[in-house]
Simulated scan of single mutants.
Amino acid sequence: MLRWALIFFIVAIIAAIFGFGGIAAGAASIAKILFFIFVVLFLVSLLSGLLRR
C-alpha cells in the first residue's frame, strides 16, 4: 500500500510540473489517504504483534 501512495505522489508531482492542477491535487489527496491508511495498518499490526508475545 505504501508503494501505491508513492506512485500517486510521483504522479502528483509530474502533473504539477506540467501544469495540471486538478490532476495533481487529486493524486496528492489519494496519496495522502493511502499513506495514512498504511500508517494505521502498520500500527495495528505492530500492536497486535506486541500483544501476542
Rank of each mutant, 00 (worst) to 15 (best):
F35E: 11
F8H: 07
L50M: 09
S45V: 14
F38P: 09
A24N: 06
R52V: 11
L51T: 03
A25T: 13
F38M: 10
F36Q: 15
F9H: 02
G26M: 07
L46V: 15
S29W: 04
F38I: 04
L6Q: 13
F38A: 15
L51Y: 10
I10V: 10
F38C: 12
G22I: 03
L41A: 14
L43N: 10
I37V: 11
S29I: 04
S45M: 14
A5G: 11
A5Y: 04
L51V: 05
A28D: 00
L43W: 12
A24E: 06
F8I: 00
L47Y: 11
A12G: 06
A15I: 02
S45A: 14
F35P: 06
S48Q: 14
F9P: 01
F36R: 15
V11L: 09
I10P: 02
F20S: 12
A5V: 06
I30G: 04
A25M: 04
S48M: 14
L47P: 07
V11I: 07
A27F: 04
L50N: 08
F20K: 09
V39P: 01
I10L: 11
G19R: 07
F38E: 10
V44C: 10
V39L: 15
I7K: 04
G26Q: 03
V11F: 05
S29L: 08
R52I: 11
F42R: 11
L51A: 13
F35W: 13
L2W: 12
I37Y: 10
A16V: 00
L50K: 09
L2Q: 14
L47R: 13
F20W: 06
L51N: 07
I17L: 10
L43M: 14
L34I: 00
A16E: 07
S29M: 07
V39G: 07
F18N: 03
M1V: 08
I13N: 08
I7E: 01
R52Q: 12
V44N: 09
L50G: 15
G19K: 03
V11S: 03
L34A: 04
R52F: 14
R53H: 03
R53E: 03
M1L: 09
A12L: 01
L50W: 11
L2G: 15
G26I: 05
F18D: 04
L50D: 09
I37S: 08
F36P: 12
A12I: 02
W4V: 10
F9T: 06
F8Q: 01
I10E: 02
F8M: 03
F20Y: 12
V44S: 14
I13C: 05
L41Y: 12
F8P: 00
F8V: 00
L43Q: 09
I17R: 08
I37G: 03
G49W: 01
I7L: 01
L41H: 14
I33L: 07
L2V: 12
A28Y: 13
K32W: 08
I33A: 10
S45E: 14
W4I: 10
F9Y: 05
V44K: 13
F38W: 13
F9V: 01
W4K: 09
F35T: 10
A15K: 00
I17M: 05
L41M: 14
V44M: 15
I17H: 01
A5H: 05
A31H: 05
M1C: 05
I13R: 07
F38D: 13
G22Q: 08
